[in-house]
C-alpha cells in the first residue's frame, strides 16, 4: 500500500440516539482523488466535519500522515495541511476578492497567530502576487477588487476553492464543489481540479454529480445510512448491486 494521507478508523458518531456514522473506515492514499458518494442523509458531510475537527467522533480515530487529528482544534488541523471547501461557501463577504485570498496566504506564511500590525497590506508584494496568481487560476482575476458578497454562488465556490488552494494543503476536502453550478462552470471546475491533481494534491470529494465523480476520482467509497457499503475503482463501484440498491432503494 502506498502512503496513507488520511486514515479513518472505526468512526462512530450519533446525534441524540440517531446514528450518523457507524464503524466507518476509510483510507485515502497520497496523491489520489477519493470520492465519497451516497444518497442524501447518508452522513457524508458529517464525515468531513469529523475530519476537520468541527465534530468530535463518539469513538474511533482520524489520523493524518500518521498524526492523530481527533480532539484537535480546527485551526491546528488546518495548520497541519487540511483545507476544506464547504457546501455553502464560507468566504468573507464584506472583503474584496483579493483580500479574501490574501488572508489565507498570511495564515500559510505566519502561522496561527502573528502580530503584524505595523506593515501595511500594500507592502506585502509577494503575498499579493501569489493571491493574484491564484485568482487567475480560479478565473476570478478580473473581479479582484470587487466585494466577495456580490459574487454569484458558483463564483463564491470558486473563490473559496482559491482560498483553500493558496494554503497549499496536503489534503483538500471538497463538499460538493460543483453543486448549483451551470454545466459550463462545472466543466471549468473539473479542469481546475484536474490541474491541481497534476500537482500531486490529495483530495477527498463529496459529490452528487456522477459526471464529476467519474472525471476526477481514482477511488470511490459509497456511504449509505452511515456505513461504507462499497469501495474501489469508479467502474467497479458503478456495477456493484449494493450501490444500485442503495441509490434506487433510497429513492423509492
Amino acid at each position: 500500500m502506498s502512503d496513507l494521507v488520511l486514515h479513518l478508523d472505526n468512526i462512530q458518531k450519533s446525534f441524540g440516539g440517531l446514528s450518523a456514522l457507524s464503524d466507518v473506515n476509510l483510507h485515502v492514499e497520497e496523491g489520489t482523488t477519493h470520492a465519497i458518494i451516497g444518497p442524501n442523509g447518508a452522513g457524508k458531510s458529517t464525515l468531513l466535519n469529523v475530519c476537520i475537527g468541527r465534530l468530535k467522533p463518539d469513538s474511533g480515530h482520524v489520523t493524518f500522515k500518521g498524526q492523530e487529528l481527533t480532539g484537535r482544534e480546527p485551526h491546528e488541523i488546518a495548520q497541519m495541511g487540511v483545507a476544506r471547501v464547504f457546501q455553502t461557501p464560507e468566504i468573507f463577504p464584506e472583503m474584496t476578492l483579493l483580500e479574501n485570498v490574501m488572508l489565507p496566504a498570511f495564515s500559510k506564511r505566519d502561522g496561527a497567530f502573528k502580530l503584524n500590525a505595523y506593515s501595511g497590506l500594500a507592502q506585502q508584494g509577494d503575498i499579493r502576487d501569489e493571491a493574484e496568481h491564484i485568482l487567475e487560476d480560479v478565473g476570478l482575476a478580473d473581479q479582484m477588487l470587487q466585494e466577495a458578497g456580490s459574487l454569484s454562488r458558483g463564483d463564491k465556490r470558486r473563490l473559496e476553492l482559491g482560498m483553500c488552494l493558496i494554503l497549499r494543503p496536503r489534503l483538500l476536502l471538497l463538499d460538493e464543489p460543483t453543486a448549483g453550478m451551470s454545466r459550463h462552470d462545472t466543466n471549468r471546475t473539473i479542469d481546475l481540479l484536474k490541474k491541481i491533481k497534476s500537482r500531486g494534491m490529495t483530495k477527498v470529494i463529496i459529490e452528487h454529480d456522477m459526471h464529476v465523480v467519474f472525471s476526477l476520482a481514482d477511488k470511490v467509497s459509497v456511504l449509505a445510512r452511515g456505513e461504507i457499503i462499497a469501495g474501489g475503482k469508479p467502474e467497479d463501484v458503478r456495477e456493484n448491486p449494493k450501490v444500485k440498491e442503495a441509490y434506487l432503494g433510497g429513492a423509492h
Partner: peptide
C-alpha cells in the same frame, strides 16, 4: 495591516478563519 485584515476576518466569518488555520 495584516493584523487589521485578520480582525476584519473575525467580524466577517469566524468559521472560515478557523478552518484557514487561524487562532
Amino acid at each position: 495591516s495584516p493584523f487589521g485584515l485578520m480582525l476584519r476576518g473575525i467580524k466577517s466569518n469566524q468559521n472560515r478563519m478557523r478552518y484557514t488555520g487561524l487562532n
